[in-house]
Design a protein around this nucleic acid. Structure first.
Length: 251
DNA sequence: ATTCTTACA
DNA sequence: TGTAAGGA
């Protein structure tokens, strides 16, 4: 049941945007100076802001509420935008566009998100989801990085798992997944990519050919990693279920 | 007169 | 972060 209010690409003057975001004009200007929000469109004397700016301001407010400093938020934003540029530069593009991947991005209006997680769609949970990287802000919409993760989140919440608890678990799993990815990367780096130069860390800039080969080779990690992790998790869950049952039966 | 920036506290 | 002063 989403109310179809008129949401044409509205634009805001400084004062309007500040009021909509619940901050002062001075603060708005301060955020802009600190590169926390993109520059507005300039029409002569007037600075025009749009929904993306408002969304960004809401994100900043949520992160501030959660205890982040302005400096930390600026780094997050820079890393997010910078990382995207680096990926495109390397020709990797959207990682979920790969043919082997079953991941799809899901665009959601804030209203749809509330529909999915009614009572639990709070500013804190939104900030946490942004922080983990499950959600990203794109203009006036939100983008979930994985249809499968989104579906399973809804299922778990319906099963009674509180969203904050689930997000904390997600954070934990993310850490393990990062460690797994690092293991695979190191494996390839040391034993498969032996003929590739050390890298930009301390040396000559790598040739475009090397960059290309590096990207392709690392890309071959993906199916390998998927298979190994899937099989190992299956085995681990098997062992765990047996152990839980044994403990429950009081063995 | 309005809208925004600069500069100082 | 508020605000007075000044440019366009």
């Amino acid at each position: 049941m989403s109310t179809d209010e008129k949401t044409p690409p509205r634009e805001y003057r400084m004062t309007e945007l500040a009021e909509a975001a619940g901050i002062t004009v001075r603060t708005l200007r301060y955020y802009r100076e600190r590169k926390l929000i993109p520059p507005p469109r300039r029409a002569g004397r007037i600075a025009w802001y749009d929904g993306r700016h408002l969304a960004r301001l809401r994100t900043i407010a949520a992160l501030l509420e959660r205890g982040h400093t302005l400096g930390g938020i600026a780094e997050l934003i820079a890393a997010f935008e910078g990382g995207r540029d680096v990926a495109e530069l390397l020709g990797l593009g959207d990682p979920f566009a790969a043919p082997w991947s079953r991941e799809t991005l899901v665009r959601l209006s804030p209203e749809e998100l509330v529909d999915h997680f009614s009572g639990e769609a709070t500013a804190e949970n939104l900030a946490a989801s942004l922080d983990i990287g499950y959600l990203a802000v794109d203009g006036e919409e939100l983008v979930h990085v994985s249809r499968r993760l989104l579906d399973v989140s809804r299922k778990l919440v319906r099963e009674g798992v509180p969203l904050p608890v689930m997000l904390a678990a997600g954070r934990e799993i993310r850490a393990h997944a990062d460690a797994l990815a690092a293991t695979f990367a190191s494996l390839f780096r040391q034993h498969v990519l032996t003929d590739v130069p050390p890298g930009a860390a301390e040396g000559e800039p790598p040739s475009p050919e090397d960059v290309d080969r590096m990207a392709r080779t690392l890309d071959r990690l993906r199916p390998v990693a998927h298979t190994v992790v899937e099989a190992e998790v299956a085995l681990a869950m098997d062992r765990r279920i047996r152990a839980e049952l044994r403990a429950w039966l009081g063995d």
